[in-house]
């Protein structure tokens, strides 16, 4: 997967891997918006550019095998990558794609990725990732997942 430098247009290969205990010193609420220490016992991944160690995005999730579903608990980009002045494009998309790949790996055509955003953020996810709506829950299933992987996964 890649991210794009919004200024130069240059693409960078990224690596998404499990967060290790030593990372928590760097994962501050100031830069990553949430108290990620609360997610210490969850399945938690970080995104970084290959060859660098700086964390640009984080996601935690919960596998729900009885529903063939992976639920995104918490997702964020680093402070400098939010809003119109963001440094890199595609961080959140890559993280959602990564979680989608976990869901496909586990449940194939039954795979589902869900999240439950609060407030105005929901519309953004519906528009950008073609998410389905069930009450307050948004989800992507195999049709949307295949499209998402085609768009974001170049590995």
């Amino acid at each position: 997967m890649i991210i794009l430098n919004t200024e130069t247009g240059q693409s960078h290969q990224v690596k998404i891997e499990a967060v290790v205990s030593g990372d928590f010193k760097k994962i501050t609420k100031r830069r990553y918006f949430f108290d990620w220490k609360e997610e210490k016992d969850q399945e938690l991944y970080k995104l970084r550019i290959v060859g660098t160690s700086d964390i640009l995005g984080l996601v935690s999730c919960e596998r729900i095998p009885e529903e063939w579903r992976v639920h995104i608990r918490l997702l964020t980009v680093s402070h400098e990558n939010k809003g119109i002045d963001k440094k890199y494009e595609n961080i959140a998309g890559d993280l959602i794609t990564f979680i989608s790949k976990i869901a496909v790996r586990e449940y194939a055509e039954l795979a589902c990725v869900s999240l439950k955003p609060k407030g105005v953020t929901a519309q953004h996810y519906i528009d950008k990732y073609d998410m389905n709506i069930t009450g307050a829950t948004l989800s992507i299933e195999i049709i949307e997942i295949l499209n998402l992987i085609k768009t974001y996964d170049h590995d």
């Binding site: 579903r69 918490l74 980009v77 402070h79 119109i84 955003p117 953020t121």
Partner: peptide, 27 residues
Amino acid sequence: GAEYGVDSRYSSKKERQADGKALMEDR
């Protein structure tokens, strides 16, 4: 930007199950 982050943690197991049930019907 709406994408800086999303907190979609369930507040209880009951909430997760209720959401899961409704979602499954749609799915």
